[in-house]
Write a protein that binds this DNA or RNA. Structure first.
Length: 497
DNA sequence: TGAAATGTTGGGGCG
DNA sequence: ACGCCCCAACATTTC
């Protein structure tokens, strides 16, 4: 069925005794351009909006994402109440909760012939999500409960885009070309208005505070809200300013500069579905015809989801099996130095500290810090993927896994093994004034620009004037670039096929 | 969505 | 004025 997009306002004349439709929110925490919510609101019943916090899932949310989820759910509660809905929070295994909830709500109807009720959701594409949803869907159908799922969080379904031989693409450029050739992106769904909310209360409801999503002792997320406002309103604000500032037009030049405010910073909003790729697409296209470079980043997200859908273990298993033979270092001290931003390479440390302080890291910096972990420290990319999963507010099962594999060289359309980012050159190139380093590694902020990328090369006198004592208040480099690079190349050579 | 080593060219200093 | 060397600057190749 296809919901009516032209006229969103509906009037229901339902008797209070009618059991509600169930709108199951997952990572689509928005009321605009939400096809499942639209369909639920038009199904001729009241709507019960639920969110289930699933701690037992194959991969629980990381700590930073939990912080985001707390605030995102709070924002969704607000948005829903404006259209007459209350958000019902539950905790536990959806495979049990959804069917039993349907049983309870629809027990009066289930004996009848025509089938009962309706459960609505927007599709997910990670292995656990796909498996869970299809299991629930068949369980519901067996019980006689109607289910409808929708495309909401991608521009293209991962199974839609195939190459000449009928397979999914393994290279980005032809993938994105084929995707765009597929035709226009459908318009966004408007926000349903005047929905009749489910008036009842469920026995197992919990409060947002019950979910215990916020960090305490210490509250390491105290700085996050200075940079991000979870929720759809925050997302729209970010997008509007991004377009107003004409950043899509400058994206080609400035997107690689972590010292500038040049990217959209929409990643976490997208990860939680507070804004849809369709909305970003259409708003950008309406504002400028120079947004292709920016929109291709949406394309990378689509590509990553295609890879994840066809490789459910993308976060755990090398896409290229040859990498199974690679011998990684298990050096815990170096891993910790990387995580804490204590490698002695200012650009790397700035990135890792930005991540810790804000829950986010600039994309250019992600490539360099990831490359450093993998190639300079030769630590398994999965360690880095796991750390990012836990510390990023935008941690995304597709983008995170695909990007780490890209850097490692083990992924599809991956960086060639010999591409080793030089942490000094990258620093000089993309943080030319040292502003980014000064911000996140303040102990180096008094160094002249000439030495801020390479404090170990500064004369003793200069270091002294800047208040730095290497090895005391800022580490000496934990590896030598030239030696580490050559060792990495040798290690990669060894597994060449 | 690299970096480093190696090769080539051409201007300028200098005997 | 010429040849030689040095070395940027740029191009190519290799990892």
């Amino acid at each position: 069925m296809s919901p009516d997009r032209a006229d969103s306002s509906i009037t229901l004349s339902s008797a209070p005794s009618i059991a509600p439709s169930i709108m199951w929110f997952r990572h689509d925490l928005r009321i605009c351009d939400n096809p499942a919510l639209m369909a639920a609101s038009q199904a001729g019943r009241p709507v019960a909006a639920i969110y289930i916090y699933d701690q037992q899932s194959e991969r629980p949310l990381g700590a930073a994402s939990q912080w985001w989820l707390h605030h995102s759910l709070a924002a969704l509660e607000q948005d829903l109440s404006a259209v007459g809905l209350r958000l019902i929070l539950l905790r536990g295994n959806p495979q049990i909760i959804i069917p039993s909830l349907a049983q309870e709500l629809y027990k009066e109807e289930l004996s009848k012939e025509e089938g009962a009720g309706g459960v609505f959701w927007n599709r997910r594409y990670d292995g656990y999500g796909v498996e869970t949803d299809s299991q629930i869907k068949s369980a519901l159908k067996d019980d006689g409960v109607q289910v409808q799922s929708f495309k909401a969080n991608l521009l293209f379904e991962p199974w839609e885009i195939k190459n000449g031989s009928g397979e999914y693409y393994k290279v980005f450029t032809p993938f994105w070309r084929a995707a765009q050739k597929l035709g226009g992106i459908e318009p966004v769904f408007s926000t349903p208005k005047n929905i009749i909310g489910f008036a009842g209360r469920l026995a197992d409801e919990v409060t947002l505070d019950d979910l215990d999503l916020l960090p305490r002792q210490p509250n390491w997320a105290h700085g996050f809200s200075q940079y991000f406002t979870p929720g759809s309103a925050g997302a729209r604000e970010k997008l509007t300013r991004f377009l107003q500032d004409e950043r899509p037009e400058k994206y080609d030049n400035d997107r690689n500069r972590p010292d500038l405010f040049a990217t959209s910073r929409l990643s976490a909003h997208l990860a939680f579905g507070e804004i849809s790729p369709r909305q970003i697409w259409h708003h950008t296209r309406a504002k400028t015809d120079k947004g292709d470079k920016f929109l291709s980043e949406i394309g990378w997200r689509e590509f990553s989801y295609s890879l994840l859908f066809h490789n459910p273990k993308l976060a755990r298993v090398n896409f290229k099996p040859a990498f199974d033979k690679f011998t990684w270092s298990g050096d815990k001290d170096k891993l910790r130095a990387w995580q804490r931003g204590q490698t002695g390479y200012p650009f790397i440390d700035a990135g890792m500290r930005e991540l810790w302080a804000t829950g986010w890291q600039h994309n250019r910096v992600r490539m360099v810090t990831a490359s450093f972990l993998i190639k300079h420290l030769r630590i398994d990319w999965r360690e880095g993927e796991r750390w990012f999963w836990d510390t990023l507010v935008d941690a995304d099962p597709a983008s995170n896994a695909a990007s780490w594999q890209w850097v490692a060289g083990s992924g599809a359309d991956a960086a060639p093994y010999f591409r080793v980012f030089n942490p000094i050159t990258q620093s000089q190139k993309f943080d030319p004034h040292g502003d980014y380093i000064s911000k996140w590694v303040p102990e180096l902020s008094r160094l002249p620009v000439k030495f801020i990328h390479t404090p170990w090369e500064a004369p003793e006198q200069i270091l002294k004037q800047a208040g730095i004592s290497l090895g005391q208040n800022y580490p000496a480099p934990i590896v030598d670039h030239k030696i580490a690079r050559e060792a990495a190349l040798a290690a990669y050579q060894a597994i060449r096929t």
